[in-house]
Design a protein around this nucleic acid. Sequence first.
DNA 1: GTCTATAGGCAGATAGAC
DNA 2: GTCTATCTGCCTATAGAC
Lengths: 205, 205
Amino acid sequence: MTTVAARPRHDLGTASRILDTAETLVQVRGFNGFSYADVAADLQITKAALHYHFAGKADLGEALITRYASRFGEALAAIDADGGPAPRKLACYADLYMRVLTEHKMCLCGMLAAEYQTLPQAMRDAVIRFFDTNETWLEAVLDRGRRDGSLEFAGDPRDAARIIVSGLEGAMLIARSYGDSGRFREAADGILAGLASAPPPLAPC
Amino acid sequence: MTTVAARPRHDLGTASRILDTAETLVQVRGFNGFSYADVAADLQITKAALHYHFAGKADLGEALITRYASRFGEALAAIDADGGPAPRKLACYADLYMRVLTEHKMCLCGMLAAEYQTLPQAMRDAVIRFFDTNETWLEAVLDRGRRDGSLEFAGDPRDAARIIVSGLEGAMLIARSYGDSGRFREAADGILAGLASAPPPLAPC
DNA sequence: GTCTATAGGCAGATAGAC
DNA sequence: GTCTATCTGCCTATAGAC
């Protein structure tokens, strides 16, 4: 009965805590804007300890995207499980972005997209996979929504999905510079308003 | 008749050439992704010479945004001078972005927006001014277009302007990662299609 | 798994000759 | 205006003790 003792919150395992700190640093300052020294200082461990868990910065970066994409995938599954109508799913999707922005962070992969040309190949591939996953999920929601009449839009659901991802990432990028999450909310509402066949639901996500 | 001899293209003045090289480097790799050594190597001069023209990287960054914003302002004035209808002006505006993307570059200020939290204050202020200028110009085009019937959209022209800037910057960010400018074109068309009261004009910008 | 110590390189920046 | 030479500091990364 002691073999699987729950870890206290302050000891999730060093690897997880490194990922937590590094993730925030990338989302705030960018992959080229932080160092192992920053992470080590925050966690009060040494740089050498970091290298034990993640041999190089590229490995850390890859693990960062993998975990982020995995959590994002779970959030999308949760929205699906909720079973609401398509317009609500889209609103909840936008809310995922909003929650990140509220912490003055950029989407991890949106940030990495800006730095794309400086990233090692494995990180590039992982960033693209993230966007592909988002696009595929949105495409399915949009397609089903239009079939069941809860959404109205012209053209290919895939194109609409790409416009949504682009619009939300861009709105995030700019709203964060202004330090004004209201800007994001208004842009997101405007983007999604053009798709719904009825006024949007008021229930929170 | 020799006092104002035109400079040959390869000698525009060192300061200009430094700005040219640094601008491209920022648009491709980000402000935290290039160094004085990169610029010096490209121009085949020394780092010390760079410091003569721009004392520090922050000064160079500020000059970069100022010149970029100035050129962008001229491009907007040229679109105004063209005297076309509002939908055409919007198409030409999107084309400004497209031309940058075609060179595998991100918008200078879109890139700097990602790195915003790491920038010195003067650069931050200049980035915000760039977006404000874009928004104001678009707002005027949208307002006049709706009044003369060439555009149809609901809500505040200012909000629509923000959606356009966000959408184009985001589409640029993502399309560049995919190395596919067609993605940008499609997204831009989709964003602008929702605003025009008639099919878009086919004439190039 | 974490530490001390350090390597080797590159960053931004300066002094002073030409 | 541009150079050589140099400084200081930070970067990623490694060796080896505990």
